[in-house]
Amino acid sequence: MCLAVPMRIVKIDGNSAVAEAGEISQTIDIQLVPSIQLNDYVIVHAGFAIQKMDESYAREALELFEEMGRIS
C-alpha cells in the first residue's frame, strides 16, 4: 500500500489530473501539489500526487552515475 511512483501529468482538470507512466494511465488528485503543470513528473501515492520531481537534482545525480560508469 506504500507504493509511490513517478508519473507524468498529461491532463489537468481542476483538482484532478491524468498521469501516465509507461502503459499505465491513472486519474489522480492534485490538491496536495498546488503548483502542478502539464508534463511535470510527480510522485503518485494512493491516488494522490504527493510531490513534484525536481529535475535539476535528478540530473545532478545522473551525472555522477555517468562518471562512475566511466571509471568502473
Binding site: P6, Y41, L62, F65, M68, G69, I71, S72
Partner: peptide, 15 residues
C-alpha cells in the same frame, strides 16, 4: 527523463 530506469544503471550499481 522518466525518473526510474535512469536510476537503475548497471555500471553505477557495480561501482
Amino acid at each position: 527523463m522518466k525518473y526510474v530506469s535512469e536510476f537503475q544503471d548497471r555500471n553505477a550499481v557495480q561501482y
